[in-house]
């Protein structure tokens, strides 16, 4: 049972007295928690499954102090700020187990670009959960034939299970599904933020399937091209596209005859169409659009559309 509580892996990165306070919560509550937030001079806040809990110490509420944050930062970066330079610039660090820690404080600007973060006073520990079978409902819509799939875009607001769905899709498509007569395909996973496969020292901590090659920590646009050249994939999978370079790389992949699965932030298909940076891939590239929401909890399947935006599946109500 204890192994199922993913949040315990995250607690290792908190100062001992704070993790002790959180451990006092009942197991049932801990299992549901998705986020732990530390804010300077504010109480610790846990949230998940629509609930929100503020942690109280022995004598009333406990307020996070500067030392707590400094200590947590040391633990997160493994005592080595220099090893997380790039991550700090992006505002988050991925820790063992694929959990993500968002950081926020004062930015240091150099030549108009964010150079690094300092005086970090807000932290958000997001618990990553691999849900085996999260893609079961959808995978049937995406399979074209025993050895090919439709190019797919998953559209979802943050915190709605986009990455979880992508991870499970990669696992399923890579392993193959005998019951659907799907053989399994070679997948190149470009995991820019180490979130999908959760690699630590090159070893994926999440199950991403037997025919999957993971390129860890590489910028998407470059990574996609690299993988097409080096690993001869059938499918390229990547997370959270948004820039013009990403669109170019995806076009290149599709033109090379490789299938693409990717995700984007948005709450419906119009959000995608409105994004000007991506206008190269708004027509004729994707053949399936999967829209998620958290109406019935994270990972609620809202709709599946085909390449002409015709509805194949829609949630009622």
């Amino acid at each position: 049972m204890k192994d199922d509580i993913k949040i315990l892996e995250v607690l290792e990165y908190l100062p001992k007295h704070i993790s002790a306070m959180i451990m006092k919560l009942p197991e049932k509550v801990l299992t549901d928690m998705e986020e732990i937030r530390l804010r300077l001079t504010k109480p610790i806040c846990l949230s998940g499954s629509g609930a929100e809990i503020f942690i109280a110490g022995q004598d009333g509420s406990y307020l996070v102090n500067e030392d707590d944050l400094k200590c947590a930062l040391q633990l997160i970066c493994n005592y080595s700020m220099y090893s997380v330079e790039e991550e700090l610039r992006n505002g988050f660090i991925t820790i063992n187990g694929g959990h993500r820690v968002g950081l926020c404080g004062r930015t240091v600007i150099d030549n108009g670009k964010v150079k690094t973060l300092k005086d970090i006073s807000y932290m958000n520990f997001r618990v990553a959960k691999q849900i085996i079978g999260a893609s079961d409902k959808i995978v049937g819509h995406l399979i074209r034939s025993p050895d090919s799939i439709y190019n797919t875009l998953i559209i979802s607001p943050p915190q709605c299970g986009k990455t979880t769905l992508l991870r499970d899709l990669v696992r399923t498509l890579s392993d193959g599904r005998k019951d659907m007569l799907f053989k399994g395909m070679k997948i190149s996973l470009v995991d820019e933020r180490s979130e999908i496969a959760a690699c630590s020292m090159g070893i994926p901590k999440n199950d991403v399937g037997i025919r999957t090659d993971v390129l860890d920590g590489c910028p998407k646009a470059e990574g996609i091209i690299m993988m097409i050249r080096s690993m001869s994939p059938d499918i390229v999978a990547t997370d959270e596209i948004g820039r013009t370079e990403d669109a170019d790389a995806i076009t290149a992949a599709v033109n090379a005859g490789v299938n693409v699965i990717t995700t984007i932030h948005g709450s419906n298909i119009t959000d995608f169409i409105k994004k000007q940076d991506l206008n190269r891939i708004q027509k004729g590239v994707f053949e399936r659009y999967v829209v998620l929401s958290r109406r019935n909890g994270a990972g609620t399947l809202e709709a599946v559309l085909d390449g002409k935006y015709d509805v194949l599946f829609e949630m009622r109500g």
Partner: peptide, 12 residues
């Protein structure tokens, strides 16, 4: 180890 490898300290 630190400046080229960016290896975290415990391992380095």
């Amino acid at each position: 180890e630190v400046t080229y490898g960016a290896t975290p300290l415990p391992a380095a």
